[in-house]
Amino acid sequence: MIAIINYNVGNLLSIHNMFKKIGAESCITNDVEVIANASKILLPGVGHFDYCMQQFNASGLKTVIHKKVINEKTPTLGICVGHQMLFEKSEEGLEKGLAWLPGEVVKFDTTQMPSSYKIPHMGWTDIFTQNKATLFENIEKPRFYMVHSYYVKCAEELVTAKAKYGYMFVTAIEKDNIFGTQFHPEKSHSFGMKLLKKFADL
């Protein structure tokens, strides 16, 4: 059972719908016991970094999720702000991130792109994989739906995919049991289905 963490943030139903579509068992939950018994953790997140962290910290789920991710090495996927929260901090706000991985979240540098480029970066974007990109195996010409103004800056060895918006930026990461995508697999048709299927099958 994949636990889609409900901490009052994000569009959880879309993720649940896609797991249903690919035949993976998942549930939207804020129940400590359900999470403790889950085989996978899905950490969503939409909106402001600080708002997401505050909601997460207030959810009472931090201890059980930390134990699952860090001690039990349960496969965990963060999506969008859920992906950003895996790191130490964000330029968007003052709250500390979960700091499960070293790195920070930074804003798009508009001085490095043509003035016609609008922020947020929104739409379908080709991605380029690197390292051992476990979740991207068997995805041909991968493209995903993105909507964000911030992205993760971290060591190359964590990076599994980059995309280009004015310049190359990190759009997916992986470290042992922890995965993150800046884009929205749950809104990315067959590309997202393949990625989430791979995660569900880990």
């Binding site: 139903l13 879309s14 719908n17 896609m18 579509k21 739906y145 909507v147 929205h184 749950e186 809104k187 990315s188 048709h189 997202g192 289905m193």
Partner: peptide, 8 residues
């Protein structure tokens, strides 16, 4: 509708 939409 949303249940059928695997796009935004």
């Amino acid at each position: 509708f949303a249940g059928e939409c695997f796009m935004p």
